[in-house]
Computed example of a mutant assay.
Amino acid sequence: MTKKHLITCSVILVLVIISRLNIFSTDPVYPVNYIAHTPSKLLFSLPAEAAEEAFSFADEALPVNDKKVDFKLKKSIAKHGYKNIQSNVLHSKADKMFPIIEPILKAYGIPEDFKYIPLVESGLKGGTSPKGARGVWQFMPGTARTYGLKVNKSIDERLNLRKSTIAACKYIKELYGEFNSWTLAAAAYNNGSIKLERAIHKQNEDNYFRMTLNRETGSYVYKIIAMKEIISNPAKYGYKNFYSYMQKPTPFLGLYNN
């Protein structure tokens, strides 16, 4: 009888231990309408729709609540804030270029977000790069000629904003036709379609934000999105006391009759 009693107690003890282990290893089940109030420092916090609307490129949303994406975008925005730049040069360039660039992009069916590429490409300095790229769209001589620009000893149409924008539209549209993604088209504009195609096949991944690319290309679209955010919301990032055509005064003031 004692032996049977010991066996029964042992079985009960084992069942209790298993039961407790299951309790502590199982995720809690909440009611359907329960919302966990967990503080988040990510730029991309719920609701996802709001985050995607705030941070996107050419209506292609960034991955929501992705720590790597969040870090890279925060870093890029901080780099282009007034605290680091200490001038209104970006907004000044935008005021001069955007009225010319925007209608050309629209005519070629290119998303308006591509207008920020010249701000990223020409940056604060502009001019000619060490590799020979020139103009606000930073065309190399061979690429410029391929898309209809004259580049020789007497003339360099890379410096003509209107003509170079038309050439850029032709190039971007071709890249979109190859990758079927405006984000990848922007990345290819920076890195070249051949290198990007190789990276896609090697990594078996065609989402720019999940790919591992070289330092410049890997941060390129983030810079464009950061530029878009800063130009659209200047005061939020420390820019004050400037006039921008993007915040136009009302027409009746007579400022548009010149």
Rank of each mutant, 00 (worst) to 15 (best):
M246I: 03
V151P: 09
S92T: 14
F209T: 02
K67L: 12
F209P: 03
K170W: 10
V136P: 07
Y243M: 13
F57P: 04
S193K: 13
S219D: 10
K173T: 02
V16L: 15
I117Q: 02
Y256I: 00
L119W: 02
E197K: 13
P234A: 05
A168E: 08
F114D: 04
L46M: 14
N152T: 09
C9A: 15
D27V: 15
A61V: 11
F252T: 09
I110L: 10
L161A: 03
V136D: 00
F179M: 03
N160W: 04
G127R: 12
F114E: 02
I194G: 06
K93E: 08
E229Y: 09
Y220T: 00
Y245A: 09
S19V: 00
K41A: 12
N233R: 14
M97G: 01
G218S: 07
K96C: 00
T38Q: 11
K125W: 06
L13D: 04
K202W: 06
T250S: 15
N204R: 13
N257F: 13
A226K: 04
S181Q: 10
E112N: 09
S193R: 13
T183I: 09
V14D: 00
E229C: 06
A226N: 08
Y243H: 14
P31N: 12
N214F: 09
N233W: 05
T212W: 08
D156L: 01
S56C: 12
E216W: 06
P28H: 09
L159T: 07
G218E: 05
N180D: 14
L253R: 12
D70G: 03
W137Q: 08
A226Y: 03
V120F: 06
F98M: 09
G132H: 04
T8I: 14
T165N: 05
E197Y: 05
N258S: 12
N257W: 10
Q203Y: 02
K75T: 14
V151N: 04
S181D: 13
Y243W: 10
R134C: 07
S122C: 05
F24N: 13
K79S: 15
V32D: 15
K202L: 08
K163G: 01
E216Y: 07
N214S: 11
F209M: 03
K106G: 11
I230D: 05
K173V: 01
G148S: 11
R134Y: 07
Y239H: 10
M211A: 03
K170C: 11
F44N: 06
L46C: 12
G127T: 10
K153Q: 10
T146A: 13
K195P: 09
P99R: 11
R158E: 03
E216P: 08
T38H: 07
W182A: 08
N65Q: 09
I231W: 04
E112K: 12
V29S: 15
G177C: 13
Y171N: 04
D27W: 13
T250A: 15
I117G: 01
G148K: 10
S19Y: 11
I200D: 01
F57C: 04
I35H: 03
P234W: 01
R210I: 00
Y82M: 02
T26G: 12
E197N: 13
A48G: 08
I77P: 01
T146F: 09
